[in-house]
């Protein structure tokens, strides 16, 4: 499953917000650019409900905010990179820099799992994460993912 096929230059950006709620909303707005999110409020509610259970801030500067929601009928992704890092209440207590944001319809368990597994595999590679942070534009970030895949 290629995640580069689920992203476009419209759904990738450097992040400007520096707080957790603000970053989530900024990522959601990026995801809205795909034209696949029917209901912004419902999508936001689903993401925040998942974050309330436990932060999706992982280790090594990666966060994967995700949720199943009726707000989309196809798997919808966005990617944000923060220059200075965000306190996302991550597992290692360190700031998060790279955010893979994923909304999945409720009836797509199989594909959703495959996408998340691909994110886990890619972000396991330190040089991939460094290249992503260094990329200067959405096109550059997309190229980094394409190359890694």
């Amino acid at each position: 499953m290629r995640i580069s096929g689920l992203l476009s230059e419209k759904t990738i950006s450097r992040l400007t917000r520096t707080d957790k709620q603000g970053v989530i909303e900024e990522l959601l707005d990026l995801a809205m650019n795909s034209g696949q999110v029917h209901d912004r409020e419902e999508a936001l509610r689903a993401i925040l409900a998942r974050e309330a259970l436990m932060s999706t801030g992982l280790e090594k500067g990666i966060a994967v905010p995700h949720a199943k929601t009726r707000a989309v009928s196809e798997i919808t992704m966005a990617l944000g990179v923060s220059e200075g890092g965000v306190d996302f209440h991550s597992a290692d207590g360190k700031p998060s820099y790279i955010f893979f944001f994923l909304l999945a319809p409720e009836n797509a368990a199989g594909p959703n799992v495959q996408v998340l597994a691909q994110i886990a595999r890619l972000t396991h590679d330190r040089s991939f994460c460094e290249d992503l942070r260094k990329a200067e534009s959405p096109a550059g970030m997309l190229a980094v993912i394409n190359d890694a895949e």
């Binding site: 998942r50 259970l53 436990m54 999706t56 992982l58 280790e59 994967v64 995700h66 597992a91 368990a109 959703n112 799992v113 495959q114 998340l116 597994a117 994110i119 886990a120 396991h124």
Partner: peptide
């Protein structure tokens, strides 16, 4: 495919409840 679900749990992307739900 429970192996991929375990992989996501170990990577901390899934919490236990989510793993069981999926």
């Amino acid at each position: 495919n429970v192996s991929v679900l375990n992989e996501l749990f170990k990577a901390r992307i899934f919490i236990k409840m989510e793993q069981m739900d999926y």
